[in-house]
Computed example of a mutant assay.
Amino acid sequence: MDELLPLAGYCALMSGTPGPNNMMLVASGAHHGYRRTLPAILGINAGGAVQTFATCMGLGALFTTWPALHAALKLAGTLYMLVLAWKLAGSAAAQDRPPERLGFAEAALFQAVNPKSWLKAITLASVFMPPQLGIVPGALLVSLVGALIGFPCISMWALFGTGIGRFLGSPARRRAFNAIMGASLAVLALMLLR
Rank of each mutant, 00 (worst) to 15 (best):
M1S: 15
L4C: 09
L5N: 01
P6V: 02
L7T: 01
C11G: 06
A12G: 03
L13D: 04
M14W: 00
G19A: 04
G19Q: 00
N21K: 03
N22L: 09
L25V: 03
L25C: 01
V26G: 00
V26R: 01
A27K: 08
A27F: 06
S28Q: 15
A30C: 09
H31V: 00
Y34E: 00
Y34R: 12
Y34S: 04
R35E: 07
A40I: 08
L42N: 03
G47N: 02
G48M: 10
A49R: 05
A49P: 09
Q51T: 10
Q51G: 13
T55L: 10
T55R: 04
C56T: 09
C56H: 10
F63V: 08
F63T: 10
W66M: 12
W66I: 14
H70Y: 14
A71P: 05
K74W: 04
A76Q: 05
L79I: 10
M81C: 08
M81V: 04
A85G: 09
W86L: 13
K87S: 11
A89Y: 10
D96Q: 12
D96A: 12
R97Q: 13
R97W: 00
P98V: 00
P98Q: 08
E100R: 15
E100D: 14
R101V: 10
R101G: 14
R101M: 11
L102T: 08
G103F: 06
F104Y: 10
A108N: 07
L109M: 14
L109H: 09
F110G: 05
A112P: 05
V113N: 06
P115T: 07
S117C: 11
W118D: 01
W118A: 04
L119I: 13
A121S: 14
I122K: 03
M129L: 15
M129F: 02
P130F: 02
P130I: 01
P131W: 03
G134A: 09
P137Q: 01
A139L: 06
L140Q: 03
L140V: 15
L141V: 03
G146P: 01
A147F: 13
L148E: 00
P152T: 01
C153S: 14
C153E: 06
I154W: 03
M156C: 14
M156L: 15
M156S: 14
M156T: 12
A158C: 03
A158M: 08
F160C: 13
T162L: 07
G163P: 01
I164F: 05
R166F: 03
L168S: 06
A172K: 13
R173Q: 10
R174F: 05
F177M: 04
F177R: 05
I180C: 15
A186G: 11
L188H: 02
A189Y: 04
L192Q: 14
R194N: 13
